[in-house]
Computed example of a mutant assay.
Amino acid sequence: MIRRAVLVAVLMAGQALAQGQGETAEAAAAAAARLEAASVMLQEADRGSDRISALTETVQAYEDGLVALRDGLRRAAIRQRAIETELDARSEEVAELLGVLQTMGRAPAPLLLLHPSGPLGTARSGMMVSEVTPALQVRVDELKADLEEVSQLRALQDSAADTLRRGLDGAQEARAQLSQAISERTDLPQRFTEDPVRTALLIASTETLSAFASGLADVVDQDLGGVAPDATALKGGLGLPVQGTVLRRFNQADAAGIVRPGLVIAARPRSLVTSPAAATVRFRGPLLDYGNVIILEPAPDVLLVVAGLAEVFGEAGQVLPQGAPIGLMGGEQPGVDAILTESAAGVGGGRSETLYLEVREGQSAVDPATWFALE
């Protein structure tokens, strides 16, 4: 009876372990397919009528694919450890199971049904064997599936290095081509030209972002007219300018007690930053302690301040379409070995860079949640 109880416990434990089998491998395979699709997009970017738009989509496709692949590898490592831990924890029970199977396999079938207590015991023995045997086969199948899944997960992680390397190289090439294409761009509408002397004087004479934003109207050298973008209808539904996670919200203090009237967004190194809406570039360049800054005007008397960029695209006075690239995050893209090490440890990696986003209406900063769909 004790052996039967052990067998039942082993059989019951296998049910939860089998759930979700294969999902992690499928997710990682899908991510690899997305990277391959991004590679095709990069090859075809030169053929499109709007090369910058095509390259922007290509960079974003690479970023999505790399994020998905890293997540798939992380989940694969976690799943593998969960299976191995469960098998280790039940090693004695698995040994009992194997012992029973070996005994049943060696003994002739009639002997398995004989019982020293006579016909009644023999009948009971037969009932127990008929009850346990199908369950044993189910558990054997589950163990086999678990071991096969572990093997598949190990093979997936072993083969991921080449996929990662191609993805990282492709993303780097796409970013370089995008930067080059933007530097050669001449097709954007121009609402005004900037007076560089007035801009330099404004930067030198202001100590706060609020004061600088208030003086932006004075740096215009020549007003070229044109229709100003108006994203008011999109208020409350804009997407964040970078793929990342909001670390701190409006007026939320950081660990040092510093409060800023904007969002702090964690992003991966070299992530592409895009314009959340069609907007006029009011300023771009280093500013105060914010690093590289680009200030966009998506609607009359509304400014979006995006700070913390390593590279900034666009020129003051240009009108950018929604989704246009406005810069790249800084930092160093982790190598293949670093990514695989992080994934094997089961940790999400990578969001080491921070982007600051502030929204100003008139002379005041407002909660970005009134313009952006943060949830």
Score class of each variant (00 low, 15 high):
Gln222Met: 12
Asp223Glu: 13
Asp223Ser: 15
Leu224Ile: 14
Gly226Glu: 02
Gly226Ile: 11
Val227Asn: 13
Val227Thr: 15
Ala228Val: 13
Ala228Leu: 15
Ala228Ser: 14
Pro229Leu: 05
Pro229Gly: 13
Pro229Met: 09
Thr232Ser: 14
Leu234Trp: 06
Leu234Ile: 01
Lys235Thr: 11
Lys235Ser: 13
Gly236Ala: 13
Gly236Arg: 12
Leu238Met: 14
Leu238Phe: 09
Gly239Val: 00
Gly239Ser: 14
Leu240Asp: 08
Pro241Met: 03
Val242Ala: 06
Val242Gln: 05
Val242Thr: 08
Val242Ile: 10
Gln243Ile: 11
Gln243Gly: 14
Gly244Phe: 05
Gly244Ile: 07
Gly244Trp: 00
Thr245Trp: 07
Val246Arg: 05
Val246Met: 03
Leu247Ile: 07
Leu247His: 02
Leu247Arg: 13
Leu247Trp: 01
Arg248Leu: 13
Arg249Pro: 00
Arg249Ser: 06
Arg249Met: 08
Arg249Lys: 09
Arg249Asn: 11
Phe250Gln: 09
Phe250Ile: 07
Phe250Tyr: 14
Phe250Pro: 02
Phe250Trp: 10
Phe250Asn: 04
Gln252Cys: 04
Ala253Asp: 07
Ala253Asn: 09
Ala253Arg: 12
Ala253Met: 04
Ala255Leu: 14
Ala256Met: 09
Gly257Leu: 10
Ile258Arg: 14
Ile258Asp: 14
Ile258Thr: 13
Ile258Lys: 12
Val259Ala: 08
Val259Leu: 11
Val259His: 00
Val259Asp: 01
Pro261Glu: 12
Gly262Thr: 12
Gly262Val: 14
Leu263Pro: 00
Leu263Glu: 00
Val264Gln: 12
Val264Arg: 14
Ala266Met: 06
Ala267Glu: 10
Ala267Gly: 02
Ala267Cys: 02
Arg268Trp: 04
Pro269Phe: 01
Pro269Arg: 02
Pro269Gly: 07
Pro269Met: 01
Arg270Asp: 09
Arg270Cys: 00
Arg270Leu: 10
Ser271Tyr: 08
Val273Gln: 08
Thr274Met: 04
Thr274Ala: 11
Ser275Gln: 05
Pro276Ala: 12
Pro276Ser: 10
Pro276Cys: 10
Ala277Trp: 04
Ala277Tyr: 02
Ala277Gly: 08
Ala278His: 05
Ala279Leu: 08
Thr280Pro: 08
Thr280Phe: 03
Val281Asn: 11
Arg282Trp: 03
Phe283Thr: 03
Phe283Asp: 02
Phe283Tyr: 15
Phe283Leu: 03
Phe283Ala: 05
Phe283Trp: 03
Arg284Lys: 15
Pro286Cys: 05
Pro286Val: 11
